[in-house]
Amino acid sequence: MKNGRATPLITSVCYVRLAVSEPKVSARFVSDIFGLQRVADQNGEIAFRSDDRFRTVSLGQNPADGASIGIEVWDDVALDEIGQRLRKLGFAVKEATPGECQRRYVQSALLTEDASGNPIDLVVRPTRSGRRYFPPRDAGIVEFHGVGIRSLDHGRDLTFWRALGAEVSDWVGDIAYLRIDGLHHRIALYPSKRNGLLYAAFEVEALDQIMQNSYFMQESQIRIVQGPGREPASRQMFLHVEGPDGLIFSYVNGMTELDGKPRLARQFPLTAASLCDWGSESKDVPELGAPGQ
C-alpha cells in the first residue's frame, strides 16, 4: 500500500459514474429505493451523496465519458508516480482536461483503463461537502465503501492495481480481494466474461440495517441477487440488490480491519461456502456464484 513511501499512493474508492439507459428511472431506484441523497444535476448527470463527500454516485447517458470508477490519490506527486508506473507497464494514461475534472468534481486527474477496459479515474482532491449527509429514507447508510469489478484478464488487472499500491488480502478461486487501507478490501476483482462494474457497496450501521433493507426490498419487490449473507474471508455482511439495467448496489457491514502487519493472502476454494458463510447463493449473477451451484 505505501510501497516504502511515507504516505500511501491511493486512499479510497471515492465515486462511481454510471452510464444508464434511462437516468430518471435509475435515479428513482438510487434515491427512493436504495436510499442515497440526490443532489443537484450538472451537465446532464444526476448525482447522489452517501456520506460527507460531495457526491459518490452519478448517472449519465453518455457511454463515451459516462462510466468510470474514481480512485482518490494522495496528491499530485503520487499521481505523477502512478502515471509513470502505469505507462511503464504499458497502460494508456491521459491527463484529464479541466472539463473532465469539473464533471468529476476533482482538482486534477489521470484517466486510464485497467487491462479489462474498465475506465478508472485517478483523482486528486475530490470535493467534500460542508453540509452533512441527509438521506431520503432511513436505510442506515454510513458511507460509500467500495466496488466489485468484473475482470476479463485477472492477471494483468492485478498488475494494474498493484501498481497503484493495492495488495491482495485473500483469494476465493481467482476472485481477488484488494486492500488499499486498513480494511480487508475496498476493491474486489471478479473473473468474468465481460468488463464493467459488478457492484457498488455502501456501508450501513449494523446487521439491523442489512436485515431491515432486506425486508424493505422484498416489500418493494426489488430483486435481491444475493443475501443477506456474509463473506467468510472478510467477515463482511452483505445484501446485493438489483436496480434498472442490472446495476447492483450493495449494503455492507462488519468487514475485518487488518492491523497493517505483513500478511499472507489466504486461498479459499471457489465454492458456495467460501462466498457466503450463512448459506445465501446467487442464482443469476455468475460472478457472485460458484460453479455447479
Partner: peptide, 22 residues
C-alpha cells in the same frame, strides 16, 4: 447472529417451515 442466519438458510434448504424471521 451468524447462527440465526445460517440456520435460516439451512432449515429453508431442508424445507422446514420458517414461520417468523429472521
Amino acid at each position: 447472529s451468524d447462527d440465526v442466519l445460517r440456520s435460516y438458510y439451512f432449515l429453508n434448504d431442508r424445507r422446514v417451515p420458517i414461520v417468523f424471521g429472521p
